[in-house]
Nucleic acid binder design. Structure first.
Length: 499
RNA sequence: GCUCGUAUAGUGUAGUGGCCCAUCAUGAAGGACUCUCAUUCCUUCGACCCGGGUUCAAAUCCCGGUACGAGCACCA
């Protein structure tokens, strides 16, 4: 009845529902969306890169589109690529997004294509070879005046271009610029540089097949713009630090008569506990020995996160929850850990680890063996069996302040010298429940964790197990941990409380 | 300095003129369950940057201010 008399009331109710997942893409048709993520392979992927991967690849799934992984490796000096990173990044991309990219592109394979477009630009007069120094041009940019090179004839541009390719200029002596307008309000857009020279004898490209082949290299704004068009990219989602890039590139697209893709931006993300890390800073810290490689768990790299047991799904949930707002934000690690806990808890077998273990002898009547569940919420995961035949057990030294304890799943005991006297098998009072281990079912082990950029080791007794490296377990009353080897574990979540 | 952008609970986030004395998550506090300080569940706490304007009606539109961030690299 309502639907007949006042259908608008029903419609409104739908609108109120909280939006789930990512917002719709503008001008997007299912099956016709092409997205890309374009890191510089100057190191393995970091936590921040994960956002680009997660958001872009999620839209691929949402629209049944295509996802391109592109290596923007066009700088051999300031941010030189790292050869191993090409493989690592592809592997990490697959791990994080759950599948391979539809296409993988190396910008350094496509230099000739960029040259062709540079020549079109020069021939059609919307680009020119500028021989001013960077400082000289800066003055022109500030004073909104044309540089003398701007009006030179196309024939001159072609000559200078040829000389650039032949290596007749040194880096800094010539650059190809896109003609925009020196009066543009935004100084960043005025006749921006598109290609420059690099001394690839001194700074060869790390890929052996490229090495010193080229001296003229495109800059990001040019290379990325051309490649996006060539690959048919329909939607670009990237950081808002690249907003002026969009504007520069749109100007270039107008010259070529192309239409620029739809663009969305996200703001800066800082993780409260990490502060600022840059790939180059990490690189030098690793080389200097501060960190133990790119997968050091203190580092905000995907490799480091992975090593401490962070699940791809947790990372995906984390970034999906932040969405793509342009706000600059600072998130606590607790948020990521909370996602990770949700992902791992159901599958994490329980295991006992007694920190700083102290040995006691059981006194009194008690069973010689004990069966306890592997996971309290999942009986189907089976039982673990403890051997108490020699009566020797281990307790956490921090638990020894109280003299009366309940040994979890076992018995009430009273401590006294190195003896634990069994008072009752049933729970008889409210004494604290502690975890413990029989000597015969445990071995020496070490748990490693991090705290404020330092690494700590905890020695103790670990319950016997048959888990392989990489298995995530929950150490009862301690926390989630991932096996490094049979007797070494790493705590998944850094303890965030001060103690 | 010029240019661009953003401002909702402690932290994130939904909300695109009336359904909003504002959503969801996280966090904190309390409780239930549990022979873990885990998981799960319940309760509570807590926000529309400031000032004008438009409108019958503004978190939502406009202007100004403030704060924060980014670009103005022959880096990506």
């Amino acid at each position: 009845m309502l639907s007949q008399e006042a259908p608008h009331l029903l419609e409104k109710r739908e609108v109120k529902a909280r939006r789930e997942g990512l917002p719709e893409l503008k001008n997007a048709k299912k099956g016709e969306v092409v997205l890309r993520f374009a890191p510089n392979p100057n190191g393995p992927l970091s936590f921040g890169h994960a956002r680009g991967l997660v958001i872009n690849s999620s839209y691929r799934e949402m629209y049944d589109g295509e996802f391109i992984l592109r290596f923007d490796d066009t700088d051999t000096k300031v941010k030189p690529p790292m050869l191993e990173a090409y493989e690592l990044i592809q592997e990490e991309t697959e791990w994080l997004t759950g599948r391979k990219p539809d296409r993988v592109i190396y910008a350094s394979d496509r230099i000739d294509v960029y040259y062709e477009h540079a020549m079109v630009m020069l021939n059609q007069g919307f680009g020119y070879v500028c021989r001013c120094t960077a400082d000289e041009f800066k003055e022109f940019r500030i004073s909104k005046t044309n540089c003398p090179c701007r009006t030179q004839p196309i024939s001159d541009n072609m000559v200078f271009w040829k000389r650039m390719l032949e290596g007749k200029f040194k880096p800094g002596e010539a650059v190809v610029r896109v003609k925009t307008d020196m009066e543009l309000k935004n100084p960043a857009l005025r006749d921006w540089p598109a290609l420059r020279l690099q001394d690839t004898k001194v700074h060869p490209h790390p890929r052996p097949e490229i090495a010193s082949t080229y001296v003229v290299w495109p800059l990001l704004d040019f290379q990325s713009a051309i490649e996006d068009h060539l690959q048919g990219v329909t939607h670009i989602i990237r950081g808002k630090d690249l907003m002026d890039s969009t504007r520069k590139q749109t100007l270039l697209y107008q010259h070529f008569g192309w239409t620029y893709p739809e663009t969305m931006y996200w703001g800066r993300v800082k993780v409260h506990e990490w502060g600022g890390f840059s790939t180059s800073q990490m690189r030098s810290d690793i080389e200097g020995g501060t960190y133990d490689g790119w997968s050091d768990p203190r580092l905000p790299t995907l490799a480091g996160l992975r090593k401490r047991g962070t699940q791809a799904r947790a990372l995906r949930n984390f970034w999906m929850e932040l969405g793509i707002t342009q706000k600059d934000i600072s998130v606590p690690l607790a948020t990521l850990y909370s996602h990770n806990t949700k992902v791992i808890d159901d599958d994490a077998p329980r295991l006992a680890f007694v920190r700083h273990a102290a040995e006691f002898t059981l006194e009194g009547e008690h069973p010689k063996k004990l069966d306890i569940p592997v996971h309290p919420n999942h009986p189907e995961m089976g039982q673990r069996t403890w051997d108490l035949s020699d009566g020797q057990i281990w307790l956490e030294s921090d638990d020894l302040e109280k003299m009366d304890l309940r040994l979890k799943e076992f018995a009430d005991v009273a401590l006294h010298d190195r003896v634990a006297r069994v008072e009752s098998m049933e729970r008889s009072d409210q004494r604290p429940i502690v975890h413990w281990l029989p000597d015969k079912t445990s071995t020496e082990a070490v748990v490693i964790g991090t705290k404020n950029d330092t690494v700590f080791h905890i020695e103790g007794r670990l319950e016997h197990h048959a888990y392989t490296p990489g298995t995530i377990v929950q150490l009862e009353r301690v926390g989630y941990a991932i096996f490094t080897d049979e007797t070494t574990l790493f705590l998944c979540h850094e303890s965030l409380k001060d103690d």
